[in-house]
Design a protein around this nucleic acid. Structure first.
Lengths: 201, 201
DNA sequence: TACAATGATGAATAACGTTCATTCATTGAC
DNA sequence: GTCAATGAATGAACGTTATTCATCATTGTA
């Protein structure tokens, strides 16, 4: 439980944890090493995070928060060119550069016991923020009208899908598929799945 | 390192582990409890599995092996109706019924440190087995000609994609999307992405 | 300077994954 | 039927590591 808020120190811990996790995996990563990496004592880690799992969660939350920020910025920027395309393009580039954290996101999904198919809160937030902005774009007549939540889910799902294919392939060179992914999204996928997902609560 | 091979006992351990993992998560699950659940002593677990992580890996391997078996059976069964459709349909139903293990698959991806985007060996095998059978179908002129590895990857990717959307949505009712998923695959996705993924080694 | 107040420390604790000396059941030779 | 021999099973002991907490250091205040 963080009694104190020193954003810099917190960030140091996360930065060190990211390296240690990538290097040794979740089980092999030692809190003591993370502390050393952050230049603090072992116990200090627990002033900022409740547990080892909480560090993973914070890294993932941070990843998704930054992704959310970037994608919202794209959708908020006034432009006449296809904003959905640009959003997907941005998301792909972003996750390609953070594949170690994408892996931690997979880890977190697995670490949580209980209820299968329960979305991570950070993802739900991303999903809703996108939907709001997509909706605004539709009102302004800049993109085709779909249910915004559906479109947001498709957008995230598509990025995840490409990431998954990347996993199968065994390399992370997703960039070269960008053009075709966008083509698929616009010309094929969106019209076909328009009423596939009824995501309204 | 398994010095002994008692398939029944091994299966008992896996069955117990599956329950304990689902109930308490990876960190919260205790080897002692898994042993108790399997009706054996703690140490005996280590005659069958090298570590806690190895149990997760075995559960995932088993999941993918059974999935591989079912999908190969579908593709081996001679039929005139669209075999790719039937394969996807089968995969969706299968994973819907094993969502706890799908979660463990995510966990395993995350547990492995190092190389991002390295595919799990079991997945690589599934992918290749599917490709072989899809190729045979093409030779017989029963499905359209694509690169078989590409088609196999798309097939797996699509199933994962739907699973991911399910995660976002927060429920596991993937079944009702089946029809549209198949429609997307056949009419839109495949033609558009035919040369999108060059999966040849 | 004395004194709170609070962040930081790292040795101590507790918990758990893993090991291994020992027990026990099975098998087969005579 | 007896008796070794084998090796699977046991669970107490071990070592490691996440987590805690009594203590120290630092900062701000009167």
């Amino acid at each position: 439980m963080p009694r104190t808020i020193d954003p810099q120190k917190r960030a140091d811990i996360l930065a060190a944890a990211r390296i240690i996790f990538a290097e040794h995996g979740f089980v092999g990563a030692r809190i003591a090493d993370i502390a050393t990496g952050a230049g603090i004592a072992t116990g200090t880690v627990y002033l900022y995070f409740e547990s080892k799992e909480a560090i993973v969660a914070a890294l993932v939350d941070d990843l998704v928060a930054r992704l959310t920020f970037e994608l919202c910025a794209v959708l908020d920027r006034p432009t006449t060119v296809a904003p959905v395309n640009e959003t997907i393009r941005t998301a792909l580039r972003f996750l390609l550069n953070e594949s170690d954290l994408l892996r931690l996101q997979r880890l977190e999904v697995g670490l949580k016991g209980l209820a299968p198919y329960q979305p991570l809160p950070s993802y739900r937030h991303l999903w809703q923020e996108l939907a709001v902005r997509l909706s605004a774009r539709m009102v302004r007549g800049e993109i085709r009208r779909y249910d915004p939540l559906t479109l947001a889910a498709l957008l995230i799902g598509t990025v995840e899908w490409v990431a998954e294919i990347g996993l199968l392939r065994g390399d992370g060179d997703v960039a070269k598929y960008e053009a075709t992914v966008l083509q698929v999204m616009n010309q094929a996928l969106l019209p076909a799945v328009a009423d596939m997902l009824d995501l309204r609560d």
